Simulated assay, not measured.
Amino acid sequence: MKLALVGDIGGTNARFALWRDEQLESVRVLATADYPGPEAAIGAYLAELELPLGAVDSVCLACAGPVGGDEFRFTNNHWRLSRAAFCRELQVRELLLVNDFCAMALGMTRLGEGERLQLCPGEPEAHRPWVVIGPGTGLGVGTLLQLADGSWLALPGEGGHVDLPIGSPREALLWQQLHAQLGHVRAEDVLSGGGLLTLYRAICALDGHAPRLHSPAEITAAALAGDAVALQVIEQFCCWLGRAAGNLVLSLGGRGGVYIVGGVVPRFAELFRASGFARCLRDKGVMSGYFEGIPAWLVTAEYPGLMGAGVALQQAFATARV
């Protein structure tokens, strides 16, 4: 009986797993820089598991960017993929490519106990959109809908590239600093790993501090150690993430709940939970009452994108099994 394989491919790492009985098995993380393309990486993964080419029948890969047609160029690494050549080389019958945040959104349907922290209390409304937003290398945004037959529909989009929202005089001044440096200011320019450093420099410029931190990791470590300027950066980051997520809730009617995902926020989870995120999520003037009862969570699951790729594969291919 054939195997199913799922992958979640980012800029630095590619995560692969077998998909069996609606669960992940044999998860491995490979550096994309070590391989010329996904075929070579998957070949190495299969070799490690002592599986021959042809052992995998169905594959789902979650990839950053719009997917369509035979040729796909990964937007955040050097890999390229031809669907036909991929299936031929790896002897795969079915290949499904999905947007990485569609997979991330689908992964929210399989969260286990202890894989999310509550940020705002409430009960999700049935059959209303779920909002999924996550700072990582960039800012990913996804929308999830449960259909009448019980299946899930994840809607791709480029919500990370919307304008950065301004909700206070202080934020307007910071926006001016950012605009002087960047021109057009996208939400992703601040709400991402690299955006922490951009925001830190803008705060230093506005408040007259000499910058002494030089990476997102340094800023996070300094904030956790109690550094006043770094704490301001984290607080403003959390507030802006709340505003961006709140805009999505209003735009989509997202009363199914808000899920904060990605690799950045869990690194300072307790600071995030104590921050102004929840206040800014709901800070919408006459529409602030709309947010009453809408829950929000911080997702701490290790491989939600891989799990979502499994869900996508399972929904797409009836033969995606072991």
Rank of each mutant, 00 (worst) to 15 (best):
G246Y: 10
V258D: 11
L271R: 12
S275L: 01
G254Y: 08
L252I: 02
S275N: 01
V249M: 11
S275Q: 00
G263T: 02
V261A: 08
N247D: 15
L250D: 12
G254K: 02
L248Q: 15
R255N: 09
P266S: 09
F268N: 08
N247Q: 14
A269T: 03
V258M: 10
R255F: 05
G257K: 03
S275F: 01
G253P: 05
A245R: 07
S251E: 12
A274C: 12
A274D: 15
L252A: 09
G257T: 08
Y259N: 02
V258T: 11
S251L: 15
N247R: 13
A274V: 00
L252P: 00
G254P: 03
G253Y: 07
G262P: 01
G262R: 05
A269D: 13
G257S: 09
V264W: 05
R255W: 03
L271A: 15
F272K: 01
S251I: 04
G253R: 04
A274S: 14
V249A: 10
G253F: 09
V261P: 00
R273T: 13
G262C: 09
F272G: 06
A244H: 13
E270C: 04
G276K: 00
A245V: 11
G254H: 04
G256N: 08
L248I: 12
L271K: 05
N247A: 12
G257N: 08
G246M: 14
G246S: 14
F268Y: 14
G253I: 06
V258E: 11
A245M: 11
E270N: 13
A244C: 15
G254T: 06
Y259S: 04
G257R: 04
V249R: 06
V258A: 11
G246D: 14
G256S: 11
G263C: 03
N247G: 15
A269P: 04
F272N: 04
A269C: 06
G256L: 08
L252H: 11
Y259T: 02
R255I: 04
L252Y: 12
N247P: 00
G246W: 09
L250N: 09
V261Y: 01
L271Y: 06
G253H: 05
V258I: 14
V264L: 14
V265M: 04
G257H: 06
G263E: 05
E270M: 10
V249S: 09
G263I: 03
L271G: 08
F268W: 07
S275E: 02
F268E: 10
V258Y: 08
G254S: 06
F268L: 11
S275C: 02
R267A: 15
V258C: 11
F268H: 05
G263R: 00
R267W: 04
Y259C: 12
A269V: 05
L248W: 12
A244Q: 13
G262T: 05
L250R: 10
G257P: 05
S251N: 13
V249L: 12
V258G: 10
G256P: 08
G263W: 01
G256D: 12
I260E: 01
G257D: 10
